[in-house]
Amino acid sequence: MASAKPNRTTYYFDADLPGFGFYRTTAGTGTYFAEFRPVAGGSKKRLKLGRVGTLKANEAREAARKAIAHAGLGKDLSKDRADERASVTVRTLVDTYIEDFVAMNKKESSAEFYRTMLRKHIDPLIGTIKAVALTRVEVQRAHAAMSKTARISANRAMKLLSAAYGWGAKNGYVPDGMNPASGVDLNREEGRERFLSIDEMKRLGEAMVEAETVGLKVNAGDAKHAPKGQRVKMHPSVTGAIRLIMLTGCRLREILHLRWTEVDLDRGLLFLPDSKTGRKTVVLSAAAVEVLTALPRIGVYVIAGESAGLEDEKPRADLKRPWAAITKRAGLDGLRIHDLRHSFASVGAWSGLGLPVIGKLLGHTDAKTTQRYAHIDVDSSRRAADAIAGQIADAIGGK
């Protein structure tokens, strides 16, 4: 059977035993299964047998043979499994939801984030409670306990728990309609959007020029081992990545994971195969094309990482240290890289482009997401209204 890591969930079937096989998710997780029809002519069912690596292939094949044989006799082992689900714990329910649904249908980064939520917040407080016995009062108390150290993460954990119960009800782990995480009072979250002013953008630009030419002093926080006071130059890929985010409104990972094969400089386009919102085409400005043209081509990724040009090349993981150094030099402590995306949108709104155009440039699939910039768009509309009304007032003799 194949073992290569696929780009999507892939199913493999055994050549000797019809109905037996395994599927592998994009995260590399493999699961053995058996397919059969409990009643002749009835709908086909799939019974999960165990994880690849935990269960040996010969053991999985024997379990599949047994399940298929029982189906031929009119017995349904999957029903027995359904009865066992009623005894699962909250930990098992959430973990199964993550591995069997999230890891198979969403990005691996989402699955890993949910695993962290389960490990750090849900499991320590309510993980051992039977899923069918968990009450809303217990969930609310758990949320309050989480909130003492992580108010935002506590909210995220509740949303994960609620999603797990919704999925669990559809798959027989809990009774239909049971969701003790539904209706829990969540912590208030303040918007964190920050929009750079033109002056702040200028200071950021000057700091990047200094970083890539004469270098920034080590005490700015960029280098790990250089002597204090020494200037360290930054690689063009670092400043180039920041400029591209500013000039395109792309997310950090969209730029760091960008391959040269996804760049069309002649037409001024980026073809992102797997952005947060799926496949996405980014229209490049002349300034963005200029930045891309100036970047050195070392490996397959536009932003060169430590393994650039090597056989096992991987994209750069982050820009944390250089970003901290550049923002400190620019006097913009606390500025997040994601704020550059907000700033791109704010300039568009201020310029009167309109929310639909801004949403398209940012790759928003839901118009509601772009509404966060509505207050800026109102300002541009007011300027337009003043300009129009001013001319009319002059014509009719108004003031």
Rank of each mutant, 00 (worst) to 15 (best):
M1C: 10
M1D: 15
A2W: 14
S3C: 07
R8A: 14
Y11V: 09
Y12A: 10
D16P: 04
D16R: 12
P18Q: 02
G21I: 06
F22I: 00
Y23L: 04
Y23R: 01
R24K: 02
T25F: 00
G28W: 01
T31P: 04
T31V: 03
F36Y: 11
F36V: 08
V39E: 13
V39M: 10
A40C: 01
K45T: 07
L49Y: 01
G53P: 02
T54A: 11
K66Q: 14
A67S: 11
A69R: 14
A69P: 12
L73H: 00
L73Q: 04
G74N: 03
K75E: 14
S78F: 01
A82E: 10
E84R: 15
R91Y: 14
T92A: 00
D95N: 12
D100I: 05
N105C: 08
K107C: 06
S110I: 00
S110T: 09
A111D: 01
E112P: 04
D123L: 08
D123F: 08
I126R: 04
T128I: 10
I129W: 01
A131P: 00
V132L: 10
L134H: 08
T135D: 06
T135C: 07
T135N: 04
T135E: 08
T135K: 06
T135R: 01
E138W: 08
Q140S: 14
H143R: 10
A144C: 11
A144W: 08
A145D: 15
A150G: 11
A150N: 11
R151C: 03
A154M: 03
A157N: 03
W167V: 05
G168I: 13
K170Q: 12
K170A: 15
N171C: 04
P180N: 10
A181Q: 10
G183P: 01
V184L: 09
F195T: 06
S197K: 04
D199A: 12
A211H: 02
T213I: 07
T213E: 11
R231L: 00
H235V: 00
H235K: 06
P236H: 07
S237T: 13
I245N: 03
M246A: 09
T248P: 02
G249V: 07
L252N: 02
R253E: 14
I255P: 00
G268R: 08
G268I: 05
L269Y: 09
L269S: 07
F271T: 13
S275H: 07
T277D: 02
R279H: 06
S285M: 02
A288V: 06
A294Y: 00
R297Q: 10
G299E: 12
Y301T: 11
V302Q: 11
G305E: 14
A308M: 15
G309R: 13
D312E: 14
E313C: 12
E313Y: 15
K314I: 15
P315Q: 15
R321E: 13
P322R: 09
W323C: 06
W323K: 05
W323M: 03
A325T: 08
T327N: 09
L332N: 00
D333M: 07
D339H: 00
H342K: 04
S346F: 04
S346P: 12
S346H: 10
W350H: 14
S351E: 03
L353M: 15
I358K: 03
G359L: 10
G359Q: 11
G359C: 12
D366P: 13
I376F: 12
V378E: 13
R383S: 11
R383F: 12
A384G: 05
A385C: 01
A385T: 02
D386A: 07
Q391M: 07
A393M: 04
G397A: 09
G398H: 08
